[in-house]
């Protein structure tokens, strides 16, 4: 079981970024990862992920971090629409 409740989400996102990263540059890998989360993750999970960006040590890989940041931006745009 995870030490921090967000650890699970973090490692899930890292896995996704790793698997979608093959053959892509970092920007498109981050976009693909962000799209994946948008498509498949539940609202509370997305919120928790975005909130975890505020922590000093997120534990996210570079691509995953960029994807999470992009997600936050796109969710904000969607909200303010």
């Amino acid at each position: 079981m995870s030490a921090h409740p967000d650890d699970n989400l973090i490692s899930m996102l890292n896995q996704i970024a790793l698997n979608l990263g093959g053959g892509r540059d970092e920007e498109s890998a981050a976009t693909a990862t962000c799209r994946h989360v948008e498509t498949f993750w539940a609202r509370p999970m997305k919120q928790r992920l975005m909130a975890s960006l505020a922590r000093p040590e997120t534990g996210l890989s570079a691509t995953a971090h960029r994807a999470a940041t992009l997600l936050a931006k796109r969710q904000e745009e969607r909200r303010t629409g």
Partner: peptide, 20 residues
């Protein structure tokens, strides 16, 4: 209808243990 995906089974288990 809600336009956001919901929880998957393992997410439900995690959320149950967290109490949400």
């Amino acid at each position: 209808l809600d336009d956001e995906p919901g929880l998957r089974i393992p997410n439900m288990f995690d959320a149950a243990i967290e109490g949400t």
